[in-house]
Amino acid sequence: MEFENRQNRPPACWWIDLPETEYGKALNIQLAILNAKITGRLEADVVLCIEHPRVFTLGRRGGRENLCVRDSFLARKGVAVIPTDRGGDITYHGPGQLVVYPIIHLSRRRLKVVEFVSGLEQAMIRTAGRWRIDAGTDPANRGVWLKGDKLGSVGITIRRGVSFHGLALNVNTDMEPFGWINPCGLDQVRMTSIERHLGHPVPMAEARQAMAAHMAQVFGMTLTTRSAEQLYEEIEFWNY
């Protein structure tokens, strides 16, 4: 699946590699980009590539009912639970998980929401294919699957035609915290990772590079690498 660019002059798209960042700060960065795009201060689309410290996030459908451990247990483990306005249910983020937040003006690229979500799934499938992993989709459930186990998740929000939130691909992720929830609200779903499937970890830098290449291929975008500092200056984000 590739989406041809449907405009005469495609908007720029910046690829921003960020270090491991607290979920709350990453959300504030997304919202600052979103506001800059909605108000017209930022023309370029932006794709953030990031990892988070351990955290559970809740989607618009909620998800606390799918949390299988007590808050006191999570407090001892140092794992926060944060409500969000993305689609979906509860999910886990942590080190070794590749998280990508595309803040993209879908209407200007003439992308429908359904095909955008499908494109995010394809980018994860192709990234897993870098290690000859034959992942795929499930007609009944969103995300990316491998032999019945879930390898990657998608949850987005659209505001004024601009997407935010995004995808999470388990690369070298610690699987234990997934056992503390019903992932994405699905009972008895087993999560997996590239590392678990291969029997050894893979370099996260290679996973980031592969994801950038496949995002560009799937959506027909030219990604230009910018530093975090350049982005923050452009969107006037001073909380860093």
Rank of each mutant, 00 (worst) to 15 (best):
M1R: 09
N5L: 12
R6S: 08
R6G: 04
Q7H: 05
P10C: 13
A12R: 15
W14F: 14
E20L: 11
L27S: 08
L31G: 03
K37A: 10
I38Y: 06
T39A: 06
V46T: 14
P53T: 11
F56L: 09
R61P: 00
E65P: 03
C68K: 15
D71A: 15
D71W: 13
S72G: 03
A75T: 12
R76H: 07
K77I: 11
R86M: 01
R86I: 11
G88Y: 02
G88I: 02
H93Y: 13
H93E: 12
G94D: 09
P95E: 10
Q97G: 04
Y101H: 06
R108Y: 04
R109Q: 13
K112A: 07
F116W: 05
G119W: 02
A123N: 07
T127V: 13
W131N: 05
I133Q: 08
I133W: 13
P139D: 04
P139H: 04
A140S: 06
D149G: 03
D149L: 05
K150I: 05
K150P: 01
S153T: 15
S153F: 08
V154W: 01
R159M: 06
R159W: 01
S163M: 02
A168M: 10
A168P: 06
L169I: 06
L169C: 06
N170Y: 10
T173E: 02
E176S: 12
P183K: 14
C184L: 09
C184G: 10
C184Q: 14
G185I: 04
D187T: 15
Q188K: 14
V189W: 13
R190V: 08
R190Q: 12
S193Q: 08
L198R: 06
E206V: 01
A207V: 01
A207G: 00
A207H: 00
A207E: 01
R208N: 03
Q209E: 13
Q209V: 00
A210Y: 07
A212E: 07
A216I: 09
F219P: 02
G220P: 10
T222Q: 11
L223R: 07
T224D: 05
R226Y: 02
E229P: 00
Q230Y: 09
E233H: 14
E236A: 15
W238V: 08
W238P: 03
